[in-house]
Amino acid sequence: MRIKTMVYGIYPKNENLRKKLSQWERDIISGKEICEAIDAEKRRIYELFQDNGITYYTDPLLNWYDLFRPLALSMEGIELGPLTRYLETNTFYRKPVVNSIGGIKADPKDFFELKENPPLPLFNPDKNTFLFFPSPYTFFKMSTIPDRLDFSKFSHSILDNYKKIVRVFGIQKIVLFEAVPYVNDDISFLSDFAKEFSVTLITTGKLTENNFNKFSSTLESLITDPEYLDIAQKHSRIPGMKFIDAHRTALEKADKLENFENYDDLILTTNDYLDFLPESIANSKVELLGTAGV
């Protein structure tokens, strides 16, 4: 068995960056200065991932105030709604209010000041970085959407915009993150996107074969809770399993891995992005994840 590891999504900030962001919010330092500080910290986190042997990682998204904010602010037709509890956590996000979905307002690769979020660029990738996006399904479920905009239209427009962003960065490896379970819905909306790009889909909660009935592609990786690993193996080149708990500070024990020796390749990752943990614990969990990789 070859075990690979992945760290994805928003990573917790250290105290120094939190202080700098606070200064930026009070106009004590400029947008350019906070961008530089964020970029420098991202580089440090990339080194942390590399030093710990993490196989795959996304940008740590230190300038994303929540899972949707900089994307919502970069697209025509989407505004920020009220602060809303993020699922069952004690963390809040500004619920996107979608009126329509137009194009991208700003070059996501350049410096661009946003209201109520640190400036773009959307990502500061290094040569190994995957691009990270909330899946259109999660975006739809966690936004306010007018009746006239059904999921099919919504997901098509959002994925079109994601494609534009992907092309600007010239990176083909993409992580799509689902924060909400599919229930009875299918994932055919991702068929074309998964044909065009190398997509790692991180799911949440229960999965069944019905979710894949109309899906006409193969994912690079499908990451699931351990009990759905067979489905992940069937529908992706490399199955992935959520192994590290992003909602507990206790460190996991690596001996849990013994049950998964039948898989040729396996990606181990976290059951949510690590922003729900104190930074020191997130660092320890990254270290632990790194030791599980072979």
Binding site: P12, E15, L21, Y65, L83, N90, T91, F276, P278
Partner: peptide, 17 residues
Amino acid sequence: FYGMVRSFDNRYYKKGS
């Protein structure tokens, strides 16, 4: 206490273990 955890935006609270 291991450190601060985000409440929203750049607001944090000490979440105990």
